[in-house]
Amino acid sequence: MGTTLSTPRFRWLVLSFMLLAVALVWISRDAAKRRVAQQGRQAQVEGMVHLLGTADLALSSASRWLRHPSLTEPGAPFADGPAILDADPAGAVIGPPRDLLRGMGSLITDP
């Protein structure tokens, strides 16, 4: 055991684990700092939610059931159109062609 623990490889292993421990401590401190910052934003967030009337996050504006999932009625994705683009979640990596959407837009804005 003594010879194993004194080899350069073992020292490298100990050093690697120490680095890993430092990294884990760093992320836990960083997470704590971010949580404190989040609490500092509480008044702004509540003011914003009060103004908007919803706490839904503006993560996607592609469709109303993606933009406001908590307020949209059941079955909303199917009410958008029979040939609706597969927007969630599989179709998300690559956006649909803009020309296609532009055509849909003109239908909606100029009936």
Partner: peptide
């Protein structure tokens, strides 16, 4: 993010808290 959030032409700056 692109996979979990859904496709969009406007993405917010993602500053999320653990």
């Amino acid at each position: 993010a692109e996979v979990l959030l859904g496709w969009s032409s406007l993405y917010p700056a993602l500053r999320v808290t653990p």
